[in-house]
Amino acid sequence: MAFLDLSNLQKFYGTNHVVKDFSIGIEKGEFISFLGPSGCGKTTTLRMVAGFEVPDQGAISIDGQDVVRLKPNQRNIGMVFQAYALFPNMTVAQNVGFGLKIAGKPKDQIAERVTEMLALVGLKDFGARYPFQLSGGQQQRVALARALAPSPQVLLLDEPLSALDAKIRVSLREEIRNIQRDLGITTIYVTHDQEEALSMSDRIVVMHDGIAEQIGEPFEIYNKPASRFVAEFVGTLNLIDATVEDSSTGRVKVAGQHLELGRSLEAVNGATVSLALRPETVRLGRIADGDQTLTGLVEEVSFLGSVVRIKVALGGNHIVLDTFNRTISKPPSIGDQIEVSFPSESVMI
C-alpha cells in the first residue's frame, strides 16, 4: 500500500455528487498535483485528506493507518490555504511556532525550529513582524513555514499561489518545489493552472467532474492525454474537423485537402472525426519528408516575445501554431497563403 492512500472516495453535498470514486496511491516524498477546472472537486478531495470533510464512502490511510475517523487536529497534516490564513494577532514567529506550542514543545526548542523554518523560506529577519506588515508572497511563505514547522507527514496546498501576481507566482513555485524536495515531504498541490502542475509535479491527477480522468507524469499527461478532456485542458489544442476517406490506411480529408495519418482509424469511412494538434508540433512551411502538409490563409499573427503565434484558417477550421521568433525571418502577414506541416504521429484523434 502506498504511503498516502486514497481509495474509492465519494462525496455528496446533498444530491450534488462532487467526488466520484476517486483513488490514488501516493508514495513517500512524492509531489502530486490535482489539476482541473474550478468546481471539479479538487478542494473537496483535499479537504477529505485534511479531515475537514468526511467522505461518504472510501478510505484514506497515511503510512498504513486509517485516518478517516481522525479529526483534523489528530492527523499531523500541514495545510496551506489560498488566503494565507495567518493569525493576525500573532507575530510571524508566533505563527510559525503555533503548532509546536500546541504540541507542548519547550520554548527554546520552538525558538530554534522557528528560526530554522524562517531561514528555509527566506524570511530570517521577519520574525517580529505582524502579518499585515508583509506582502502577499511573504505571507504565503510564512504560511508554508507554519505548516512545515511541526514536521507533518503530509503537506497539502490549496491553490497557494492564485492570489499572487505572475512574477512572484513563478519564483515561489520553484521555491516551494525545492523546499519540498529538500524535506522529502509527501505533498498534494491543488491548482487549476496547468503550467504550475506541469512544472512542479512528479505526477499529475487531472480531475473532471469529480473523477480522476488521468494520473501520470507531466510528460505523459501532456503528450499522451488519455481523453479529449485532458488533451484540451492541458495545453492548447487545435481541433480540426476531418472526413474519413479510408479508415484502414488513415486517409482523411480536411477542407478539400488530403492527409495520410499512417494508421488505421476506428471511425467508419465517411464519418467526421476531429483531429487534435498541439501548436508546437505544427511548423511553418514544408520541412521534413513524410510530414503532412495543409495550405491555408494567415488570419492572425501575435507576437509573444520569443515566440510568434500564427492562426491559420483552413476552410471552417483554424490551426494555431507557434514558431520561434528568429530575427532573420519576418513572420508572415495577415492574408498570406502559407503551408503548415506536422508529423502524422503528432495528430491525436
Binding site: 485534511a50 479531515g51 475537514f52 479529526k71 483534523p72 487536529n73 489528530q74 492527523r75 499531523n76 497534516i77 500541514g78 495545510m79 490555504f81 490564513a85 495567518l86 493569525f87 503555533f98 503548532g99 500546541i102 504540541a103 504560511a143 507554519r146 505548516a147 511541526p150
Partner: peptide
C-alpha cells in the same frame, strides 16, 4: 481550519 490542522 488553519489552527485545527496545526493540532489545536
Amino acid at each position: 481550519e488553519a489552527a485545527e490542522s496545526l493540532g489545536a
